[in-house]
């Protein structure tokens, strides 16, 4: 256990890094989308367009900050704050390496025994930002956007909760670090079918939770201008934007931690350099970047779902499939192992 000031320092560094990660995620996304669409993407500001996010940030800061006259001022200002704070706070529970591996420090901020529940709790509070932002703006489009997003997120939270159940049952703990240390895939091959189904159910639910394509109905620009962020401008808009991208980073980090070995690298790297698979940070960051690439890939290849398709898919298919995966895993643990 580190002293308190170290924990505060780590939390501060993590927030700054996530801010930078958000800025460069926009660059990564635009470059990748450009390649997917046979374009170059932003490449003029600095080498490979690397200064583009900084230019965007400066532009965003100097924009006029408009608050609609009929808006609920207090809630209007509160909403982006809620979004961004709970997006950042979620990341604090994710371990980035084995204990004491980072120059004698633990490469995580919170090592909670209920880590997984903590992650679910903070993500479910993050909904309020979207929800209240859309309501407070006092605009029809914003309100429709937030109603859609809340219905969607509540519906897909069921799939999310049920699909992590397989991992919890196998690991027998809610501590994210212990889940990584155990490596759920190594327990028994009999558990693989349930885990694979759970992985995809979790992935789809997480995509819906962060409102990524094909579940980006809350801000369907053809119908709703920009959904819940229609009336937001300048820094408040940037905060919502940041919350969304940090949400994507969180989703990737949680998928990696629960299902893909988290901060551990492939064991055969130990043959090259002993202990390489235990290095902190790099493996988790590599996995996050790869998973973010898949999210962006989805953005480039899939079309948005219609609202009734979204609801039907969530309740009729995803919920049942995730439940089936949990039952299958439970049956294997009870009868086979």
């Amino acid at each position: 256990m580190d002293p308190l000031w170290v924990i505060f320092l780590k939390a501060f560094v993590m927030s700054v890094l996530l801010l930078g990660g958000f800025a460069y995620l926009t660059w990564y996304q635009r470059r990748l989308l450009g390649r997917f669409q046979h374009r170059l993407g932003p490449n003029r500001t600095g080498p490979f367009g690397l200064l583009q996010p900084i230019a965007d940030a400066i532009k965003m800061i100097f924009k006029q900050d408009v608050t609609p006259t009929r808006a609920d001022k207090f809630v209007f200002i509160l909403a982006p704050g809620i979004s961004v704070v709970f997006a950042l706070v979620t990341f604090g529970a994710i371990p980035a390496g084995p204990a004491n591996s980072f120059f004698g420090l633990d490469p995580w901020i919170l090592d909670l025994d209920i880590g997984l529940l903590y992650v679910l709790a903070t993500t479910s509070i993050g909904v309020y930002g979207i929800f209240l932002g859309g309501w407070a703006a006092n605009s029809k489009y914003s309100l429709l956007g937030s109603l859609r997003s809340s219905a969607q997120i509540i519906s897909y939270e069921l799939g999310l909760g049920l699909s992590v159940l397989s991992v919890i049952m196998i690991a027998g703990t809610l501590n994210l670090r212990e889940i990584v240390e155990l490596n759920v895939w190594s327990v028994s091959p009999w558990l693989w079918p349930g885990l694979i189904v759970a992985l995809f159910a979790f992935w789809i639910s997480a995509t819906a939770e962060v409102s990524n394509v094909p579940f980006d109905l809350p801000e369907a620009e053809q119908e709703l201008v920009a959904g819940y962020i229609t009336e937001y401008s300048s820094l408040k808009f940037a905060l919502f934007f940041m919350a969304e991208y940090v949400g994507m980073i969180n989703a990737s980090a949680i998928i990696a931690t629960l299902f893909l070995g988290g901060y551990k690298g492939p064991a055969f790297f130990d043959l090259l350099i002993p202990g390489m698979s235990e290095w902190p940070f790099i493996w988790l960051i590599l996995k996050i970047v790869l998973l973010l690439g898949v999210f962006i890939w989805l953005q480039a290849s899939l079309m948005r779902m219609r609202y009734d398709q979204l609801m039907r898919f969530g309740w009729v298919w995803l919920f049942e499939i995730a439940l089936g995966a949990a039952l299958l895993t439970g049956a294997v643990i009870a009868f086979v192992l």
Partner: peptide
């Protein structure tokens, strides 16, 4: 009692109150 706290947030603040607000807004 962190478990109780997490459940409190997930169930009450995260699900039930969102539905309350949903109905109010709808």
């Amino acid at each position: 009692a962190p478990f109780l706290a997490a459940i409190q947030v997930i169930v009450y603040a995260g699900a039930i109150m969102v539905l309350f607000l949903f109905v109010i807004m709808l």
